[in-house]
Design a binder for these strands. Sequence first.
DNA 1: TATGAATGAGTTTTCATTCAT
DNA 2: CATGAATGAAAACTCATTCAT
Lengths: 208, 208, 208, 208
Amino acid sequence: MAGVPRDKAPSGSAVLAGPLPERLLTVATRLFAEKGFEGTSVQEIVAAAGVTKGAMYHYFAAKDDLLYEIYHRLLMMQTSRLDRFAGGEGSAEDRLRAAAMDVIETSFLHLDELTVFFRSMHLLPQNKRKAVRAERRAYHERFRSVVEEGQRAGLFRADVPADIVVHFFFGTVHQLTTWYHSGGPLGPHTVSHYYVGLLLDGLRHTPA
Amino acid sequence: MAGVPRDKAPSGSAVLAGPLPERLLTVATRLFAEKGFEGTSVQEIVAAAGVTKGAMYHYFAAKDDLLYEIYHRLLMMQTSRLDRFAGGEGSAEDRLRAAAMDVIETSFLHLDELTVFFRSMHLLPQNKRKAVRAERRAYHERFRSVVEEGQRAGLFRADVPADIVVHFFFGTVHQLTTWYHSGGPLGPHTVSHYYVGLLLDGLRHTPA
Amino acid sequence: MAGVPRDKAPSGSAVLAGPLPERLLTVATRLFAEKGFEGTSVQEIVAAAGVTKGAMYHYFAAKDDLLYEIYHRLLMMQTSRLDRFAGGEGSAEDRLRAAAMDVIETSFLHLDELTVFFRSMHLLPQNKRKAVRAERRAYHERFRSVVEEGQRAGLFRADVPADIVVHFFFGTVHQLTTWYHSGGPLGPHTVSHYYVGLLLDGLRHTPA
Amino acid sequence: MAGVPRDKAPSGSAVLAGPLPERLLTVATRLFAEKGFEGTSVQEIVAAAGVTKGAMYHYFAAKDDLLYEIYHRLLMMQTSRLDRFAGGEGSAEDRLRAAAMDVIETSFLHLDELTVFFRSMHLLPQNKRKAVRAERRAYHERFRSVVEEGQRAGLFRADVPADIVVHFFFGTVHQLTTWYHSGGPLGPHTVSHYYVGLLLDGLRHTPA
DNA sequence: TATGAATGAGTTTTCATTCAT
DNA sequence: CATGAATGAAAACTCATTCAT
């Protein structure tokens, strides 16, 4: 056992389906969520994916790139979904409600990605961090525009800046991962319902 | 090579007042917030505090301990403040409002600690993580009890579990650090005011 | 400070042939015997082998592993030799004499290993120490069985437990390293001859 | 708990009797035997003795000195006992037997010291190591002189150099610590008896 | 495309010892 | 006599990345 290289990939027991880049992202997401980005070695990732380091570096220039790609894909997906809901039919309130419900429910399906996102953004190198932030800001703006539309239409209170409303809402959505566990008493849909209720009722009411 | 000290602290540029443990915690908090726990080396901490590594390990058994102590002190302070507000005079709504305002305003004074908290909790070893979680849970329960009191008194809507309400509120408070920057257009008090408004109006309203 | 390699191997002066794991074991054995396990740094080992630390840790999970492997290889060799001699032809006395001679002469060829063995066994982590002890116990038992055979055949005195006889003999063999130096007046073969004489004559005689 | 110095001595639970230097040597011997010299920190020693580092450094200039003093005291005691037995009445055989019995039985009373001796001698600095070796050599010579006396008197075989005989015997005595455990089936006296028997019968007999 | 041996720069931690009080 | 805060030097180990094959 000693004197034998220690980082051969275990041949069986791995996720062996699908194209390699996706497989690597999938296992990396899980591992980063479990043990943190810095707590997960490249060796562990490639072992879990059933390949060797060389293979990974063939597709990703650096470990950072895995992180960036996880963020990028998550944001792409959320952006496209938001566009669909925000640009749909109905009142600003209807559309905001639908979009908000969707964000939360989608978040429940991607808790690992969210966990990694808010824990490890600061570990990206400057240029990639800037790129991610730009994507996120665009997402935020799109959401805000619906809130503003509702305010102009007199549906929502106008005494709180739309910017604050969006931060208020996404803030709590992004913290879901710190308390929600899938084994608990409340299902994703229930939580989404409550959260959207608290948001929209807070929005609709005009304070004394 | 020999005889050349490798971790001498630079003589200027450091916080050189007060007892060493506090000094170390102060600089560690700032550095962890800036560059992350994993991105900050012990060497950088002790250099910023103007001492050597040995001095730090004289007081803290591990780098982890700095992290734990930051959390612990923050939670102690928040708990004692919450007790004061929640146990005060007035209706449940008055007390909730006062406590909520205080939490947010206090958070603005400790943004660095909050940043570190939610980014790096997972880096604590199990036993310390458990201890922190227990403290945080107690805090959560105390807050929840005020919400429940208000629900029983008919002041707050009762169709949303108090637990959810607390998660909803603290979630967004804890995310403050991801968007708020002290140079921005809105002051801490203003943001607190908006946030508490959104929360309490969402709570007071009874949906159709 | 940055950019200055800290553990580059000196290009000359090293054992540069053969597969790396063996090379590392060879130099480690010599260094451990010279300066002790704790007194030898990993840095010194890899420098003597002409590689960097990373290379060593590619093959050995820990410094301990070098130690374990040294023991393991020594015991494997001794066990296989003992099997050959103990299981050979001739009376129990003939076989014991042959085996004993061989043990001592072989020990002279591996004084460094023996030195390290008895000085540093206690530095192994529990699990590895257990493994070594098990191997050594098997070796002891094999030797003892020949002594017992001789006792049953009436060739050896039976008033001393075979276990004690084996401890008595191996004890002194294992201490060879504390006094024997290859430059001295007595050659390995001479010493072996004397030792085996003292043992077998002590065994054969029945005290009054 | 954090931010508090980590090496205060535990106030109770320690050996608190007798003069400090002796107390320190006693606990050091036990700890060195248990965990090795390098595996035992000065902090552990002083904590076990119920004092602080300063106190220890008041009596011993260095950690090495504890080791040296352990050796020195053991050798002083053994030398004085050997002088008594070797210089006593009776034939060379009688005196050798008595001295040998005494060495072994005394060794059983000082197993910890012996363990430390043979494991850690190499950790002493050169000058102290030389001093110990000189003391040990004198002891060896004294013992050898009795063997030679017996050889000249025709009591012992003369075909084995007395030097070898002494190494043979002390070798196995010094290895006692590697296999003897006080809980085992054989008491110290029994083992001493067997060992001395094997030695003297090996000595007395003249090989064919 | 893919391998895996080897690198090099860095990390946390340990600890004997000193010295002002 | 004794304290204990602080030092300074080194140690074991990690790991993202490269490169000859």
